[in-house]
Design a protein around this nucleic acid. Structure first.
Length: 899
RNA sequence: GCCGCGGUAGCCCAACGGCAGAGGCAGCCGAUUCAAGCUCGGCUCAGUGCGGGUUCGAAUCCCGCCCGCGGUACCA
């Protein structure tokens, strides 16, 4: 195919429009009812205009110049044939941008649209700057919804999953993200999960995958165990049902062994990751430093060892082995009754605020490590089995919970530190503040052999077993003789059997357990009869290493090609929702550290920079099907077009803030895009594109390697340094004529946009682009000929800038300006510093800090000149200036005495 | 309760400690139109949640409150 400016001319455009209108009309009725409902739910101001735009774009016969359907239809195949977004591995500096991959539940939704619009703008900015950019795509394809859908429909989870992936892939294409499709992966493909299993076995070898019997979170609806992180306020993160406890033997990944590193390495993320995410991780890990003290039958952990002399009793978690072993025969009936009561409580009731303390005396005593005093041991549910040693020393004078308990059960209260008269502390702590006393006490305890310094974490090991089908099988075999035997690497993957429909129904054990000829295998070690592990892995395991697989998705000799990972990783920019702040992002960081220790990668942090986008909400509330306040992405795109939706997402506000769809206006975006297209038409018609560049009519396959339509912009350097590091080069073919005022505006705004993009303040960058469009319009309406070189320059800059946000419209502009397709790689224009610099500025003249006058002064005015000018001003007349603050060239403040 | 983030025109949002308004939405007026819509032009609208402080000068920095959002909650 050959694309010349002729073929992209007006006649062709009109032809396209006719075609599209016919197509749109036939598919319209179904869309319309949905759209009408959505409009009804919205604030009145949005709805009215929306209806107008709709009829304008689709039915008014081309009155509106903005025919997004035609543009989408025209440019998508052109782009694909040009291969614009293949990371080429050339010598150019490289960058990688990874969007958190999608879970394939139906089509893409508004949240995806926002994340991908933001990430894509950054990726496209880098591409324009001449970086070799890896922007991959994949699917988080295992998981419960597919399984539940399969049960309902008597189907296999793969059918639902891959059908949805197909739909989403199509939407991705339509959404015009700058994706390199060669990277595509699905975590449910055996060629992927083979390596998830392989990695699990490496964890196992290192002792980082362990089987433990423990009280674990159990979701009674999904009938599977859950990781701590998947329990939100005592409820299942997925289905919302109250989580109960079960005593089970399960696989854990020992993330707690990395707690300290996970904490320490945050130093290198500081400033590059959003502060709230780092705070949330820190809180989740929950490091607390203190001491272990020996009270005879057991140790307790405390962060306040300095209060040990106020300890009057001990409390152990009732649902711990320790409590059972300590209980005396006499107290056994009371204890057993209490334990069964506690076991029956959900975490929700157990941790409910303001409830009366409960507990039972165990009929046993411990011994105070310093005084030797016998202390009664109680079991109470306010002590949790999993934290510290599952036992505490109770210091009722110091701790509210201990005090409440002491008062309920009439136990003594003994004041310490801070209440001098009654202080029970010994001389060696006298007069010390808390910190010193803590250190001193630990030293004393160590000297006497009754304690030691210690640290505990809130973080628990990561429970990865799931009693469900649609996940990655755990690649071990249980053998009566050999115990747990890993499946040998050369027998991976352990492929899921073919189960569908009712066979997948949850039944407390994994559906895999019922497939006897899958379960029963020969032990790889002794050859005797053995059984496969029938659980599958938490899908967060799949997503803990996928970014590495992107670099070499078909690699067969390992989870990833080390050379490719060396080239592209770690990820320069990761983009996704803040809802993954503790789960996914903690697990990926953990995985990366383990892979580093395994020698598989040479970095400890997976993502250099993180952008967490806010949510798209409607009328202040999160969208949900049950509330019926869903905004459908497909309908938005059908109504306004891809570009307007993308622009609205980016322009709505700072990326990390929520977007209330009721507050924003895709219709406004449509108007703006229509304006810039008309601008491009006028200018394109009035002036030819620079001859030596515009005539290059056959871009061909080499297009992606350079800049296809150079126009006024030179090709970017291909040296190994980032392009931005290069000074302005005299080869730049900036025009030498044209309206100077407009040119200054163009270059000033271009400089601002460049800086804003680097700071990722995308909403403000868009505002500046709008300003540029307004400036050109005003200039032309004010008498500047559309053929003026400054107008063309401005329009071309605008097209390149908009290519980051609204690819179709930008490409259309580019065509109307007479260029061959490929604005996405036109190259980022460099602002001319001479034009950016202001010659004169308005200087504010303040009196006592209040604005009193404005002076137009040269931008490089000296302090002396400005001082003289200020004092000569009428506002200074008759005043006694006691102080003069001169900050050339922007402000002068006269501090005067009297009125 | 604790931790974090945020309160600027009717709404969404800008503003190196230096002229509170860049951009958009909505509204109003006008041009265009047979008319409506679209389009174009113009206009109105806040003294920055409240109270102190620092400073020549505070939306911006500090302290104390109020409100909203998010996270977390017997973690010893």
């Amino acid at each position: 195919m050959v694309f010349t400016s002729d073929r992209l001319g007006l006649a062709d455009r009109l032809g396209c429009q006719r075609h599209v209108r016919a197509g749109a009309a036939s598919g319209r009725s179904t869309v319309h009812t949905h759209a009408a409902r959505v409009r009804g739910a919205r604030a009145a101001h949005g709805g009215k205009t929306q209806a107008r735009i709709r009829s304008g774009a689709l039915a008014s016969g081309g009155m509106s110049d903005y025919d997004f359907e035609a543009m989408q239809r025209r440019w998508q195949p052109v782009w694909e044939s040009l291969g614009l977004f293949t990371a080429d591995g050339s010598g150019k500096p490289r960058r990688s941008l990874v969007d958190m991959f999608a879970y394939p539940s139906g089509d893409l939704h508004m949240g995806h649209a926002e994340a991908y619009a933001l990430g894509d703008a950054v990726a496209r900015f880098w591409i324009q700057q001449g970086y070799d950019v890896l922007h991959p795509v994949g699917w988080d394809a295992f998981g419960l919804p597919a399984e539940n859908a399969a049960i309902r429909r008597g189907a296999h989870p793969a059918e639902w999953t891959y059908a949805n992936i197909g739909t989403q892939a199509e939407s991705f294409r339509r959404y015009a993200t700058s994706i390199d499709w060669r990277t595509r992966l699905h975590t449910s493909d055996p060629s992927y999960y083979r390596w998830t299993q392989w990695l699990f076995l490496r964890f196992l070898e290192r002792g980082l995958a362990v089987r433990k019997r423990a009280a674990v979170n159990w979701c009674p609806v999904d009938r599977t165990v859950l990781a701590n992180e998947q329990v939100v306020a005592g409820r299942c993160e997925r289905c919302g049902s109250a989580v109960t406890k079960r005593e089970l033997t399960q696989w854990f990944l020992t993330i707690t062994a990395y707690a300290e590193q996970l904490l320490d390495d945050m130093a290198e993320l500081e400033g590059h990751w959003p502060a709230p995410v780092l705070t949330m991780q820190r809180n989740w890990i929950g490091r607390s430093a203190g001491a272990y003290l020996d009270f005879g039958p057991f140790e307790v952990f405390t962060t306040r060892p300095d209060t040990v002399f106020g300890a009057t009793f001990l409390v152990v978690a009732p649902d711990s082995a320790l409590a059972g072993s300590l209980c005396s025969a006499g107290q056994r009936p009371a204890f057993d009754a209490y334990v069964s009561r506690v076991r029956g409580e959900s975490d929700i009731t157990r941790t409910a605020a303001g409830r009366a303390p409960t507990g039972v005396f165990l009929g046993a005593h411990g011994r105070h490590p310093f005084t030797g005093e016998p202390l009664p041991i109680w079991a109470a549910d306010y002590v949790l089995p999993g934290h510290g040693t599952g036992a505490i020393m109770a210091v009722p004078a110091h701790d509210e919970r201990d005090l409440a308990f002491a008062q309920t059960f009439d136990l003594p209260v003994r004041p310490v530190a801070g209440t001098r008269d009654t202080d029970a502390s010994p001389d060696f702590l006298a007069g010390m503040d808390r910190e010193a006393a803590t250190a001193r006490l630990i030293a004393e305890a160590e000297a006497r052999g009754v304690g030691r310094a210690g640290v505990t974490y809130r973080l628990r090991d990561w429970l990865v077993s799931r009693q469900r089908f649609w996940g990655c099988p755990i690649p071990v075999v249980h053998c009566a003789n050999c115990g747990i035997v890993p499946v040998p690497d050369d027998q991976l993957p352990v492929v899921l059997p073919d189960l569908r429909g009712e066979a997948l129904a949850p039944q407390d054990v994994s559906p895999l357990a019922t497939v006897r000829d899958w379960v029963e295998v020969d032990c790889p070690r002794c050859g005797g009869p053995a059984e496969r592990d029938t659980d599958t892995m938490d899908t967060f395991v799949d997503s803990s290493w996928y970014f590495l697989r992107y670099c070499s998705p078909a690699y067969g000799k390992g989870p990833f090609d080390p050379d490719a990972v060396g080239r592209w990783m770690p990820v320069d920019q990761y983009v996704g929702g803040a809802e993954h702040a503790v789960m996914h992002l903690l697990y990926v960081r953990f995985f990366t550290k383990v892979l580093r220790d395994l020698g598989l990668v040479d970095f400890a942090e997976p993502f250099r920079r993180l952008m967490t986008q806010g949510q798209v909400v409607l009328n202040g509330a999160a969208m949900s099907k049950s509330k019926g306040n869903m905004v459908d992405l497909g309908e938005q795109i059908d109504t306004y077009g891809v570009d307007a939706v993308r622009l609205t997402m980016v322009f709505a506000g700072p990326p990390e803030e929520d977007i209330d769809w009721a507050d924003v206006s895709p219709a406004g975006s449509v108007r703006f895009l229509g304006r810039v297209l008309r601008l491009a038409s006028e200018i394109g018609a009035a002036s030819p594109a620079a001859a030596d560049h515009a005539q290059r009519s056959t871009p061909g396959p080499t297009l992606h390697r350079g800049s296809p339509a150079t126009s006024h912009f030179t090709e970017l350097s291909r040296s190994s340094e980032p392009p931005s590091a290069h000074p302005v080069d005299s080869r730049e073919l900036w025009i030498t004529s044209g309206d100077p005022g407009l040119r200054r505006t163009t270059h000033r705004l271009l400089a601002a946009i460049t800086e804003l993009m680097e700071e990722q303040r995308l909403n403000v960058a868009v505002a500046r682009a709008m300003e540029l469009a307004n400036a050109v319009r005003r200039a032309i309406d004010g008498g500047l000929p559309a053929g003026d070189p400054a107008a063309r320059e401005a329009a071309e800059v605008l097209a390149v800038v908009l290519s980051l946000f609204t690819p179709y419209t930008a490409e259309e502009m580019w065509a109307r300006l007479g260029h061959p397709p490929g604005v996405a790689r036109a190259g980022w224009p460099r602002a001319d510093p001479a034009l950016v610099a202001e010659t004169t500025v308005i200087c504010a003249l303040q009196v006592n800090g209040k604005l009193r006058d404005r002076l137009e002064v040269p931008a490089d005015i000296t302090t002396d000149d400005l001082t003289a000018l200020a004092l000569a001003s009428p506002v200074a007349a008759g005043r006694t200036v006691t102080r003069l603050v001169v900050r050339p060239p922007h402000v002068v403040n006269l501090v005067v005495s009297g009125p």
